[in-house]
Design a protein around this nucleic acid. Structure first.
Lengths: 213, 213
DNA sequence: TGCATATCTGCACTCATTGCAATTCTGCAC
DNA sequence: GTGCAGAATTGCAATGAGTGCAGATATGCA
């Protein structure tokens, strides 16, 4: 490949047009984060957000296909990390080994960009149905992508469907645990605490695999 | 609308009010199924459906909270089956045993009511984002419910979070496989074939547990 | 400088969803 | 059978997301 979408600290090899566009996009995310925190998700209209970022309401939809998208501006960051991790497969690795490592890694750089957005997102996923729906879709898509790469990494051991099942099991364990943990009214707790709790719970759930190692 | 003097499969404890309401609800689902099949999901408006069922558009929302809900009129049937299955826990059963049995069972009575609605639903889940989102939410909620019961069934072995992780892993494996299988353009294949493929793939993914038995 | 292309924007429109208030049933009691 | 309290139905108006369209602007490149 030749083009990496856009990353905070990225090369200036971009045209004015692109830079301007990226700046506006960023402004939209920030304005939205701000307004959502201040007035709530449902109370904030797309028009409000567009106005805050100084663009026309109509133009908003040329940056984000929906209001929910604002909360997942880097929908693929984690996926890319996981995929990269899979690529680093070491000889002798079992599919499960690779997945466990990838999972761990994705859990770590949990703080994608502004932790503020991340925290807000968790709260909204818990409270707003449409946001939860979007989050689940993003997750499902990511899962599929990872499965594709896993299958490719072990052509002799897994077919597409088996890989998808395996990935589903691992990610399912994590999200299942997370779902329960996030039910607590006071989310903002401490990311590390949650992280640890997830690891503990999934360790039990995935124990058969870890034991096999 | 025609009159069915006596519906054999209905609980006797219902008042006229309830029966009438149930009939209208059913009429709505049927009208929707029909229209969705004939003109497509997005091309069919809630007003169309309400008209077809002979009720006011406004009234529709006193039966279903959203257009998507029409596709999941028995959102809890499978869950109840799984929960019941868990309740039948036999001494000596491991959590994983109970889950495997429940999963198998849920996969079986896959034909919830009119296979027509079920088939349509699968197609729409694959093609319409908002429907996919809804499906994922229903699934997540069901998962949570099952986890609750599993935790209750093994108070000495699992806490809420561990149970959720375990359930997430099992259901995640199944849905992961299913997701890939449904990508084929020609869904209507043969339910049994899909069922078998899912079992095969999940067997690989969950093998460590099955082996432990 | 000047055109071809990419963006931006206002306007009008469709559609899901909701609040409100008037109207029409149904269950139950007298 | 009459009447009432509560439930259900419905029309109307309004909000807000998302889209198609056409004209106005800005940018890349010759």
């Amino acid at each position: 490949m030749q083009w990496v979408p856009y990353d905070a600290g990225m090369a200036p090899e971009t045209s004015l047009r692109e830079r301007k566009r990226a700046r506006t996009r960023q402004a939209l995310v920030e304005a939205a984060t701000d307004l959502f925190e201040r007035h709530g998700y449902e109370q904030t209209t797309v028009a409000d957000i567009a106005a805050a970022a100084e663009i026309g309401t109509r133009t908003f939809f040329s940056y984000f296909a929906s209001k929910e998208e604002l909360l997942f501006p880097h929908g693929d960051a984690r996926i890319r990390a996981a995929v990269a991790s899979i690529a680093e497969r070491r000889p002798g690795d079992e599919p499960a080994d690779v997945l466990l490592r990838a999972l761990h890694l994705v859990g770590d750089d949990n703080d994608d960009l502004t932790g503020r957005l991340a925290a807000l997102r968790l709260r909204l996923i818990r409270d707003v149905p449409s946001v939860r729906g979007k989050a689940l879709q993003v997750q499902a898509d990511g899962q599929r992508e990872i499965a594709r790469h896993l299958a490719a990494a072990f052509p002799d051991r897994l077919d597409e469907v088996q890989a998808a099942a395996l990935v589903g099991a691992f990610i399912g364990a994590v999200t299942g645990a997370l779902q329960v943990l996030l039910e607590d009214e006071d989310l903002p707790e401490d990311p590390a605490t949650v992280q640890a709790a997830v690891e503990r719970a999934t360790a039990t759930a995935l124990q058969p695999w870890m034991a096999a190692r």
